[in-house]
Amino acid sequence: MDARPTAAHSTPLALVEVPLGGSPVSLDVPIHSTVALLGDEGTGIGALGGWALGLEAPPSGQVLVYGTNVSTLPHHERLAFRRRVGYLPAGEGLLHNLSLRDNVALPLRFGSSAAPRAIDGRVAVMLAAVRIADVADRRPAQVNEEERRRAALARAIAFDPPLLLLEQPFDGLTHRTATELLEFVRGGETAQGGRRTVLITAQDLPAVVHRRIEQVYRVTRSGQLEPEPAH
C-alpha cells in the first residue's frame, strides 16, 4: 500500500461514520478548503486528529486521509504518512526541553534527508514567517502563549503539507493574531493551484475567523452535524 498522499485522492480527509456526539457522523473535507468542526468536549471532536493520524483508533467507523486509513499502515509507513499531514495538537505539543527553533527543526531533522545546514536555513525562514525569530532560542516555558502557538504552527507546516489538522488553534489569541495565523497556515496559491486543505476543531471560533472559513459545522450533543452560519 502506498503510504504517501497523492493527487489521485480528490478528498484529502473523509470522516466515515465516526462517533461524534454519540452518533455516527460522515463528512468530506474538500481539497483546498478550510472546514471547522465546533463542539463541546463531550462530543469527541478533540479525538479526530488522533484518529486521522492513526494515533488512536475510533471506536467505530474510520477516518480516511487521502483514501487511506492511517492506523492500518505498518509502523514506518505510518510515520512517513504523518509527515505529509500538518498537525497542531491542543496544547501545542512542543517539547519543553528544546528551544522553539529546535522544536520547529525537529521533524525536518528526523524526517528528511536534507543536510543539517539546509534544514537550519529552512527553519530560519519559517521562524521569520511566523514572526518569532527574535525569541526562537527560548524554550516554550520562557515565551507567551501566542509565541508558542506560532512555533507549533511553524512545526506543523515544516514539510509544507497539503493537509492540516488544527486542534483549538485560536484559543487564547487576539482576533487579529487568529486571522493572521489562519491565513498563514492556509498558504497562498501553490504550484498545484490551490491553498492547503485545513480541518479545524474547536469549541468556538472568533467571529472574524468564522467569516473567513468556507464551511463551519457544529456537532450537537445529540450527534447532529449542523452548518453554523457566520455571526
Partner: peptide, 17 residues
Amino acid sequence: LGEVRALEAIGIDPRQY
C-alpha cells in the same frame, strides 16, 4: 505531558529521539 504522542504525530519515531 503528551510530548511522546506529539513526536509520533509529526512523524518522528520516539525511539529515535
